[in-house]
Amino acid sequence: MSAWSRGLLAGPVVFVTAATVMAGAALWLPAGPAQIDNLVLPIVLFPAIWAALFFYACLDRRLRRAWGLTLLLLLANAALIASRFVGTPAVRP
């Protein structure tokens, strides 16, 4: 059962979390001197975000903690993105 749970976490859940972190980073990452870092860096670093989450999900001995931290990241970034759409019209940050 725990193997399935870990597989679910390290597979689809981590992938969706990495994509959500990438999207959310557009809102919390500094734009930098060219005003593009918040848009470009998350896209370029997406494989690294995914890899970090994947190895963490595979290697953390406490599976519940791995689920908790991954879901926290997912929900925090999803909430940030949702607040963008609910609060103001979607415009460039």
């Binding site: 994509a19 990438m22 999207a23 959310g24 557009a26 809102l27 848009l39 998350p42 896209i43 370029v44 997406f46 494989p47 690294a48 993105i81 963008r84 019209p89 979607a90 415009v91 460039r92 940050p93």
Partner: peptide, 26 residues
């Protein structure tokens, strides 16, 4: 190769559409 390759594959298929949705309304 793996890092840059997955960047190129995901940039167009996920990265740009998702970023456009979040920052420019799609």
């Amino acid at each position: 190769l793996a890092f840059t390759g997955s960047y190129f594959s995901f940039a167009g298929s996920i990265g740009i559409p998702v970023m456009a949705m979040v920052a420019f309304g799609g």
